[in-house]
């Protein structure tokens, strides 16, 4: 059986809020290492990969592999019934028909119990090759969100150009063009504003802004975001969570004919 207790319901609420417009039904794969999810959007252009390691939970117990097939719209409806500060416990049997959620208020003596009906989901699972990325950019997640939003008003696509010490986000649209450059920046006083660009070779790739704007819904999960790029491979956008857990998005590039 599965029993997983989260100190703060807000983590799961934010994860589901961040991915539910990209994927609708998905399996939460539970085993003794934690709870994982991998799902592609309908157009097979973007992929979500979540890992909540067992250390994220306290306690965490999962004796055998259990796949919880959940409709994310339903999941969000139930998670909205939890306060952000509530303690959240997920429970399921070994061959479950439902997943149970218990929300406990740490301040009041309130316990809320919900069940969500599970579904059989036949999901394609993709193997992601280990990649040494040519460029890794770490920047404030809010800054990345603002750039994607601003440029999406002008164009459908953005070119991300990484070179030594600088990364440039460039778009060309019907009404005009836009470009935002960021340089390596490190501050002891405001480390949350740091920008770090690690580069083994220059990279320039173009991506759909519609998907990037969607990924940025995860910004509330982490103050910083990591963009990993190599020429002619999907972009990796990673939000790191506590205890080595993560929410990752992959996006296939746009390439000239």
């Amino acid at each position: 059986m599965l029993e997983a207790r989260l100190e703060q319901a807000s983590i799961l609420k934010k994860v589901v809020d961040a991915i539910k417009d990209l994927v609708q039904d998905c399996n939460f794969d539970c085993n003794d290492s934690g709870i994982a999810l991998q799902a592609m959007d309908n157009s097979h252009v973007a992929l979500v990969s979540m890992m909540l390691k067992s250390d994220t939970f306290s306690p965490f117990r999962c004796d055998r592999n259990i796949a919880l097939g959940i409709n994310l719209n339903s999941f969000q409806k139930v998670l909205r019934c939890a306060q952000n500060e509530d303690i959240l416990t997920l429970k399921a049997d070994d061959s479950p028909d439902v997943v149970s959620l218990v929300f406990e208020s740490s301040e009041q003596d309130r316990i809320s119990e919900y069940d969500i009906k599970l579904m059989d989901i036949d999901q394609e699972h993709l193997g992601i090759p280990d990649t040494e990325y040519a460029a890794t950019i770490t920047m404030p997640s809010g800054e990345f969100q603002r750039i994607c939003r601003d440029l999406s008003a002008l164009s459908e696509s953005v070119a991300i150009e990484a070179e030594k010490n600088a990364v440039k986000f460039v778009c060309n649209g019907d009404i005009g063009n836009g470009a935002i450059s960021l340089r390596n920046h490190s501050s002891v006083e405001k480390p949350e504003q740091n920008v770090n660009i690690e580069l083994s070779e220059p990279v320039a790739l173009t991506f759909s802004l519609k998907y990037l704007v969607n990924f940025c819904k995860a910004s509330g999960l982490s103050g910083s975001v990591k963009l990993c790029l190599s020429n002619e491979v999907p972009l990796l956008v990673e939000y790191e969570l506590a205890s080595n857990s993560y929410l990752r998005f992959y996006l296939a590039p746009k390439i000239g004919d």
């Binding site: 592609m40 097979h44 252009v45 993709l126 759909s208 999907p234 992959y250 296939a252």
Partner: peptide, 14 residues
Amino acid sequence: SLKQQKLGQYFYQS
């Protein structure tokens, strides 16, 4: 013009 690629071109079925 640019063509949107699919993930299946890069990732393998497992």
